[in-house]
Amino acid sequence: MEENQKFSTALSHFILIIGIIIITFPIYYALVTSSQSLQTVLSGKTTLLPGGNFLENYKEIFSTNKNIIQGISIWRLLLNSLIVTICITFGKTIISIMSAYAIVYFKFPFQKTAFALIFLTLMLPIEVRIVPTFQMASSLNFLDSYQGLSVPLIASATATFLFRQFFMSIPDELCEAARIDGAGPLRFFFDTILPLSKTSIAALFVILFIYGWNQYLWPLLITTKQSMGTIIIALTQMIANDGTTPWHLVMGVALIAMLPPILVVVLMQKWFVKGLIDSEK
């Protein structure tokens, strides 16, 4: 029995190690490529060991060299991405939790119809509604602005649905006790609902941050100025069609673009996992 358990444990660890190697190898290869010269990369002699141009390449990336990212500093691109991501993340969270609170704790005409309409938007990806959304943003003068990059993306049916399911799992006795104590809807929301929703908010924050950071299609459409571009857009613009792509710098920028989402996941991993577990309950 013990031998079977040891074999099962060893097999599980072996499978996990193989999976980790498969997942992390592209990241490692990008790191190795970013530390080598362009001549080495283009010659196809890239090795699996880091090269000697690591500091030189990253110094070039973080400089204001106009040949790297359309004359725009990578700091400006990172700042644009961060501002847009924060606006999308907080906007989605605030609107979703308020919508779910209204649907669960308020009685109004066509209540179920309103939730059904919100839920039906899950079937309409951004590619389907992108033309009318662009026309509306254009009529509001949202082109080449942080409002245009973030406001059309702050509604989230998924987050609303998750908050609704969580609120429905809260015992009705809490709401009745709050009414007996004389608490109104706002006080009940801020004193009871929000503290209970901390883990769910943290879990959604991680998901929505990654969603906002990795946006590509909408920022590509809504912006015409290079100064309003995001790091993801700039990364694709570095890849040329005439064979002059600086792949050593592209790999470095790709790794830099990965750092903020990774940092958020690492710092909020405990809250993220706890939020998912509590949501399942």
Rank of each mutant, 00 (worst) to 15 (best):
M1Y: 06
E3I: 03
N4L: 02
T9S: 06
A10V: 10
S12F: 07
S12R: 13
H13A: 01
F14R: 12
F14W: 13
I15W: 08
L16P: 08
G19R: 05
I21P: 05
I23M: 13
F25P: 01
I27E: 01
T33F: 09
S34G: 15
Q36L: 07
L38M: 13
L42G: 01
S43G: 15
L48D: 02
N53V: 03
N53C: 09
E56F: 11
N57M: 08
Y58F: 15
Y58C: 11
K59W: 04
S63D: 08
T64S: 15
N67H: 15
I68N: 01
L78Y: 04
L82M: 13
I83H: 11
I83S: 05
V84M: 15
V84C: 07
V84F: 09
I86M: 08
C87A: 13
T89N: 03
T89W: 11
G91F: 03
K92T: 10
Y101C: 03
Y105M: 05
F108Q: 03
F108L: 03
F108D: 02
Q111R: 15
F115C: 04
I118Y: 11
T121C: 15
T121Y: 06
L122E: 00
S138P: 02
N141E: 09
L143M: 09
D144L: 08
Y146F: 14
S156T: 01
T160M: 07
T160V: 10
Q165E: 13
S169A: 04
C175K: 13
E176N: 14
A177K: 04
R179S: 08
R179D: 11
I180S: 04
D181E: 03
G182P: 08
G182V: 01
G184S: 05
P185L: 11
R187Y: 00
F190N: 12
D191K: 14
P195R: 08
L196Q: 08
K198C: 06
I201D: 06
A203I: 00
L204T: 00
L220K: 00
L220N: 12
I222W: 11
M228S: 01
T230R: 09
I233S: 06
A234F: 05
I239D: 02
A240H: 07
A240S: 07
D242N: 15
G243I: 12
T244F: 12
P246Q: 08
H248G: 02
L255I: 11
L259H: 07
M268A: 14
W271E: 15
F272D: 01
F272E: 06
V273S: 10
I277D: 01
S279W: 07
